[in-house]
């Protein structure tokens, strides 16, 4: 039973954390619950907009497709030519929204807190690419998809945002964060569970 007034993760019922592949595939999966996610839209050719965001977050928005940028504790994922998702620590999304809204009051832009609309499945280990490739049509070879790269795509027919957050050479790497709509989280988790076990 969910306790009233208590935040509950999308996969709280799945006993997902730290699941390690039993099949010999060297990978593990966990849920990064409650991560702050804010969708920002604005005109990338408007230097004033970019400067305002930089002033508010000390972060340069990534302008090249399929890339990300990071100034801890906030990172920005490129979602489209005028759309970004800002990732921040659990609970800090309201502060990010407030500071952006205050800074961008004059211009033409939108800031939306979507933290509870998505959850994050974190897939890590040397076999991660093999596991993702089972359900994703992207070229996931390290020369085509590397540390920091982002793609909005589909895994096993579920819409996801794929973000590589650690390199092959890192301890336990590579690491992929898979952002999936809350309503698809159970399905996608079960799909991963089936693939890695």
């Amino acid at each position: 039973m969910a306790e009233p007034g208590k935040i509950r993760s999308a996969l709280a019922h799945c006993a997902i954390d730290g699941v390690v592949a039993k099949s010999g595939l060297d990978a593990s999966i966990s849920e990064q619950a409650f991560v702050g996610k804010v969708v920002l839209r604005g005109n990338p050719s408007d230097s004033e907009f970019l400067a305002t965001v930089r002033g508010a977050l000390e972060l340069d928005l990534p302008l090249a497709p399929n890339t990300s940028s990071e100034t801890p504790p906030v990172s920005a994922l490129w979602l489209g030519p005028d759309e970004w998702m800002l990732i921040c620590a659990p609970g800090s999304e309201a502060a990010v929204v407030d500071s952006l809204n205050a800074a961008l009051a004059e211009g033409h832009s939108t800031v939306v807190d979507v933290s509870d609309a998505y959850t994050v499945l974190r897939l890590s280990g040397p076999a991660s690419r093999t596991i993702l490739a089972k359900g994703c049509a992207l070229d996931l070879h390290p020369r085509a998809f590397a540390f920091g790269d982002v793609a909005r795509t589909m895994i096993a027919k579920a819409d996801v945002i794929l973000h590589q957050t650690a390199d092959e050479t890192d301890d336990g790497g590579p690491v992929f964060d898979v952002y999936v709509a809350r309503s698809f989280a159970d399905y996608l988790w079960r799909w991963f569970d089936k693939i890695i076990n």
């Binding site: 497709p65 399929n66 489209g80 030519p81 049509a137 992207l138 793609a151 909005r152 795509t153 589909m154």
Partner: peptide, 10 residues
């Protein structure tokens, strides 16, 4: 034009 070559299913 933005994301590069992708599968038609997208």
């Amino acid at each position: 034009p933005w994301c590069g070559e992708r599968d038609v299913g997208e």
